[in-house]
C-alpha cells in the first residue's frame, strides 16, 4: 500500500529567507511507521529542506515553531486542529507565516 504523502508547504512573511528564498515547496513525505503529524513534520523540515541550517532557531523553539509563527493547514489555524498532533493528510497545504518583522 502506498503510504507516501504529497503535501505543499509555504513559508511566507520573511520565513522563506531560511529556505533559500523559495516560498512554495512541494514535498513527498516517505512512508513511516508512525503517522505523520505536524510535530514530526517540523523536524523533518529542519533536517531536510531548511537551507540556512545555522539559523534553525529562527524557525523552531523547543519541540514546536518559534512563538510568533502562525501555522495554517488548508487555511485553517492549526490551533484548531490539535497543533503538533494534527495528522497530515495527502494534498495538505501547510503555510508558515511569520509575524516577527517590522510593521
Amino acid at each position: 500500500m502506498d503510504k507516501v504523502l504529497n503535501i505543499t508547504t509555504e513559508f511566507t512573511s520573511g520565513l522563506q529567507l531560511l529556505f533559500g528564498n523559495v516560498k512554495k515547496h512541494k514535498l513527498v513525505l516517505p512512508e513511516a511507521e508512525k503517522p505523520w503529524t505536524l510535530g514530526l513534520l517540523l523536524f523533518w523540515i529542519k533536517d531536510n529542506i531548511l537551507v540556512d541550517k545555522d539559523k534553525w532557531y529562527l524557525f523552531l523553539k523547543g519541540n514546536t515553531v518559534r512563538p510568533g509563527i502562525i501555522v495554517a493547514v488548508n487555511d485553517q489555524d492549526w490551533e484548531l486542529l490539535g497543533d503538533l498532533n494534527y495528522q497530515i493528510k495527502n494534498n495538505d497545504n501547510i503555510t508558515f507565516i511569520s509575524t516577527l518583522h517590522g510593521g
Partner: peptide
C-alpha cells in the same frame, strides 16, 4: 493582536512587505 493582523492580511491576501530591518 499582531497575530490577528497577520491572519487578516493573509486571508485578504493583502500585499505587504515583511523583511525585518537590516539594522534591527
Amino acid at each position: 493582536y499582531e497575530k490577528e493582523i497577520v491572519m487578516y492580511a493573509y486571508f485578504k491576501k493583502l500585499n505587504y512587505f515583511s523583511t525585518e530591518c537590516v539594522f534591527a
